[in-house]
Design a protein around this nucleic acid. Structure first.
Length: 578
RNA sequence: GCGCUCUUAGCUCAACUGGAUUAGAGUACCAGAUUUCGACUCUGGGGGUUGGGGGUUCGAGUCCUCCAGAGCGCACCA
């Protein structure tokens, strides 16, 4: 179904045949991998373009013109190629016979399975960890971006043959959780005594904890009032975590994100994983007790030298060694995180992908170092950073302040604009660019709002299909070959690029490509539609010419199929009517 | 002070991971078409030293280096 990979394989086979005849040394398969076949930037160059001559020339130390001419003469024999041309720096441009595009469309429309993608993953395991927000508050806009990015990426990777596990790491241990529990206890007291308590620095003053306080009151009555922190902590911590996590899970479900696994940090700490990593690292002589240097700059006034258990992460490219134990001999977060990564590796025996927020960029080198150390570089950890989201309403910037507990929650955004808008908008930028998310704009029924624009194209397709009694079994290649308008053929060519787009999204872990493609496809379809206004003979349905109508409707149908496939990747269901 | 990530048209962003005489879209602006199979849809126009300098090579927005600006992070928190 992927025209580009089909012909790339043919070209490679031809190269191997020539290589045998002329005894070229192509044992270095990396060189063959560098050969690509893609649609040229400039349409006038043809349909396909390959860099084969240049790649081979550099490997064989030959003149690229010489190789290009040899290749060209062989490629010209292929029937499907109308024109094969060798041009300046070393490209070979190919024009396909129009019947190839007709056949392509015919196959697409008549196959029951829709699009099929290349099996890049070959069933390999891939663990995608994302969101992993601390259960100390509700999810907000930034989390939404990571959630959509990770979830969509996971879908894309599944489509190309990876076995993907969607995972959320719950940081349900440590100081922040103690602060959370203490905050909830204050809300509990507040609920009983009907008076306000002051939240000291480090506690969570957000109103969202009021219901937790009430719940504790409902369960325990006044029995906890006089208990010390140590006594009430184990009693109410499970309640607090469960409630916070439930809210998070609900928001995720509403956003269309279904995690496969929630892993608890507490459980990791209780397991033997930490001892295990200690043993592993010790065996590799990567542990020592030492004193870290004071970081330069004036941000830390209370710095004092402390001997701590350190991991030699510098050896793996980190800027400094990192502490595994705190001064009081308890584990650092980093230590438990290494243990967690070991846990993931042991469970899936595959590679890991972490989706992180922009504020965690500084963490990457140390955790990657650790993964490389414990697996002897056998497992790869890929980190993708999602940059921040700026919220605004009709141009007015909405400020977020987490400290005061005053920020726009994901739940609010979901209520305001719905899941589909969020999912699409969060992927209309590369992951490393900031996103401007304007509540007003994303609800507009116009081109300003890409999800509307794409869905509108789909609705138009459906409208045509409805008014035409379209049936697949009326189609044959003869009718399809009536499609001769340049815009029609161009649209088929654009359709043919869909699997390439999806596969590239998978290869480079860039889900935004799907959105950009869908916008492009919608645009070309709208354009073709309007051609029918200028010239009535170009309308999709012509009562006096059933053959061409059938062919054009087949084209419309395949546009619909493709938009649906694309939106499906984003977990968005297009609506037939708007 | 150090590290990471960014900087592309007035604005918001792409650019198939090093490819093509002319770096593409949208928006805004100007000029038009259409009102239907479906309604803010389409066509055309001007707008650029890809933050700046240097380097690597057949070829650089993309890689290296220096400089400037923005964001994030900087023992023991998570």
């Amino acid at each position: 179904m992927n025209i580009y990979s089909k012909y790339l394989n043919e070209i490679k086979n031809i190269i191997f045949t020539i290589a045998e005849e002329l005894s070229w040394d192509l044992k270095n398969s990396k060189i063959i991998k560098k050969i690509v076949l893609e649609p040229p930037k400039n349409q006038s160059f043809g349909d396909l373009s390959t860099n084969a001559a240049m790649v081979l020339a550099s490997q064989l130390k030959f003149n690229s013109i010489e190789i290009g001419e040899i290749l060209c003469s062989e490629l010209k024999i292929i029937n499907d190629f109308d024109e094969v041309e060798f041009v300046k720096p070393g490209f070979i441009n190919i024009k396909l016979n129009t019947k190839i595009w007709h056949t392509f469309l015919f196959n697409l429309v008549t196959s029951n399975n829709g699009w099929i993608y290349e099996n890049l993953g070959q069933g390999k395991f891939l663990n995608v960890e994302f969101v992993s927000a601390n259960p100390t508050g509700p999810l907000h806009a930034g989390h939404a971006r990571g959630a959509v990015f990770g979830d969509t990426l996971a879908s894309i990777l599944s489509l190309v043959g990876y076995k993907v596990l969607r995972e959320y790491y719950v940081n349900d241990a440590g100081n922040q959780i103690e602060a959370l529990v203490e905050s909830c206890f204050l809300r509990y007291l507040e609920n009983i005594n009907k008076r306000e308590y002051s939240f000291s620095n480090g506690l969570y003053p957000g109103n969202y904890l009021k219901k937790v306080g009430k719940k504790i009151n409902d369960l325990y009555g006044k029995r906890l009032i006089d208990l010390s922190f140590d006594k009430y902590f184990p009693l109410i911590k499970p309640i607090v975590i469960e409630m916070m996590l439930n809210d998070i899970k609900n928001d995720l479900v509403k956003l269309g994100v279904e995690m496969d696994v929630f892993t608890s940090e507490t459980k990791i700490l209780e397991s033997n994983r930490l001892d295990k990593i200690l043993k592993i690292l010790n065996k590799k002589k990567l542990l020592y007790t030492g004193i870290l240097e004071k970081p330069k700059g004036n941000s830390n006034n209370d710095w004092e030298p402390r001997p701590q258990l350190l991991f030699n992460s510098k050896k793996f490219g980190d800027d400094t060694d990192r502490a595994l134990k705190k001064a009081d001999n308890s584990w650092t977060y980093f230590a438990s995180d290494i243990a967690y990564h070991l846990d993931k590796i042991e469970r899936t025996s595959g590679n890991l992908i972490n989706i992180l927020g922009a504020d965690h960029g500084g963490y990457i080198s140390r955790i990657s170092s650790a993964v490389n150390a414990i697996t002897d570089n056998k497992c790869q950890l890929i980190n993708k950073i999602c940059s921040i989201v700026h919220l605004s309403d009709n141009g007015q910037i909405i400020k977020m302040s987490k400290r005061s507990g005053d920020f726009v929650t994901l739940s609010e955004i979901l209520n305001k604009v719905g899941k589909d808008v969020i999912r699409f908008m969060m992927l209309t930028r590369r992951n490393d660019q900031t996103i401007e998310f304007d509540f007003h704009k994303v609800k507009e029924q116009s081109k300003d709002n890409p999800i509307f624009y794409v869905n509108y194209a789909y609705a138009r397709c459906k409208s045509i299909l409805n008014s035409s009694n379209f049936k697949n079994n009326k189609i044959d290649l003869d009718k399809i070959s009536k499609l001769t308008e340049k815009k029609e053929i161009d649209l088929i060519k654009l359709l043919s690029q869909w699997p390439r787009v999806l596969e590239a999204s998978a290869k480079y872990l860039e889900p935004h490509r799907v959105c950009f493609y869908l916008i492009d496809l919608a645009s070309q379809f709208h354009s073709l539609w309007n051609k029918g206004n200028e010239d009535k003979n170009l309308r999709f349905i012509l009562k006096e010419d059933k053959k061409i109508s059938t062919a054009r409707i087949a084209l419309v149908n395949s546009v619909a199929i493709t938009i649906e496939s694309g939106l499906n990747v984003l977990s968005i269901k297009p609506t037939n009517k708007m």
